[in-house]
């Protein structure tokens, strides 16, 4: 649905995007993850044609948004920007009506009904008569979300949609986003909050310095970084774990204080390891299989980028193998 191929973009002397490549599959939630200044917002602006690339190409619905057919692209996109971009002096209703008319929904009962429906979907319908300047941040975000779906877009571009929200509102908004893909929409969301992406993202793109470091489904990416199972064992002393490093079943070993992180050939060997420890009189206090979170993945990728060129992470999902040093990184 969206294909960003080798896009670079400069703002005077600042390079905002460097050979950025993103593919967004239809009907998925793709999350752009990266620190502030990674180029996430610029990427969204490229997709709607609000900005044009200096190098590379962008294709959305098979069209180039930077060309005259960009209007057709923008008509099929709904955007929620990092700031809600609402007109404070207008009421919520007027804000939605403005969008409805710009997106060619026209005026009339059908449009009014659609405005009410979209507002109700995000729980903001009771406040539509109020001036937006008096809205709370959460209300503004809800109104911006309602505005973005008003014209029933096929592609939703959400730039930090939960920024400034309290945890409850943020969870509610994320649930609404999840629900929208159930309606067949494609979502591309930017965030620097890893917890937000966890469990929501079908695909993640980890960005840094305006480029995509890795891309793929979170589970596939995790497998590419940790292809063999990892387990954490803790004992009362810690040093009595060290002899496990010599075992054939253990492919890598690192210990920090009383906890060791082991890469093992198969999780079925874990009971044997525990038995061996107890036979030697070790006081085993914890056995914990390691399930990498998006946060683990993100920092693993980022750390790899900070490493030497030889240690750069696998270039594609399912290829390459992390070095043994990753287990040590994990232990940290």
């Amino acid at each position: 649905m969206v294909n960003v191929a080798g896009v670079s973009r400069w703002f005077e002397d600042v390079q905002a995007l460097t050979n950025l490549t993103i593919e967004v599959p239809k009907g998925s939630i793709t999350v752009l993850l990266g620190p502030n200044g990674a180029g996430k917002t610029t990427a969204i602006r490229m997709i709607t044609g609000a900005l044009s690339p200096h190098q590379g190409s962008v294709s959305v619905f098979g069209l180039d948004p930077g060309q005259p057919q960009g209007e057709a692209v923008r008509r099929r996109c709904g955007v929620v920007s990092a700031k809600p971009s609402l007109y404070d002096r207008l009421s919520g209703w007027d804000n939605l009506r403005y969008a409805a008319e710009l997106y060619d929904l026209g005026r009339g009962k059908a449009t009014d009904a659609r405005i009410n429906e979209a507002a109700a979907q995000f729980g903001i319908d009771q406040a539509l008569d109020q001036q937006v300047g008096g809205y709370s941040t959460g209300m503004k975000t809800r109104l911006a979300l309602a505005r973005s779906v008003l014209h029933e877009p096929e592609l939703l571009l959400l730039d930090e949609p939960t920024s400034g929200l309290d945890p409850e509102s943020a969870v509610a908004v994320l649930e609404l986003i999840r629900a929208m893909t159930g309606e067949g929409r494609t979502v591309l969301m930017c965030t620097h909050l890893l917890l937000e992406a966890e469990g929501l993202a079908d695909e993640v793109v980890i960005m840094q310095h305006g480029t995509s470091l890795v891309w793929g489904a979170p589970a596939d990416l995790a497998n590419s970084y940790w292809p063999t199972p990892v387990v954490r064992l803790s004992t009362g002393i810690g040093s009595d774990l060290d002899h496990l490093a010599d075992l054939d079943q253990v492919t890598s070993y690192a210990r920090e204080d009383k906890t060791a992180t082991l890469e093992v050939a198969d999780l079925s060997v874990v009971p044997q390891l525990v038995r061996r420890l107890t036979e030697r009189g070790a006081d085993v206090t914890a056995v914990q299989p390691f399930q990498p979170t998006l946060e683990d993945l993100y920092f693993a990728v980022r750390r790899s980028q900070g490493s030497t060129a030889d240690e750069i992470p696998p270039p594609q999902v399912g290829t390459g193998r992390p070095s043994r040093s990753r287990v040590a990184e994990l232990a940290r």
């Binding site: 400069w10 390079q15 310095h209 470091l213 890795v214 594609q316």
Partner: peptide, 19 residues
């Protein structure tokens, strides 16, 4: 998608793909 080298610090001469 490949892991890429860090971005260049100085913008190269801009080659536009369109007019």
């Amino acid at each position: 998608m490949t892991a890429l080298a860090p971005p260049t610090k100085q913008p190269p001469k801009i080659r536009r793909t369109t007019s």
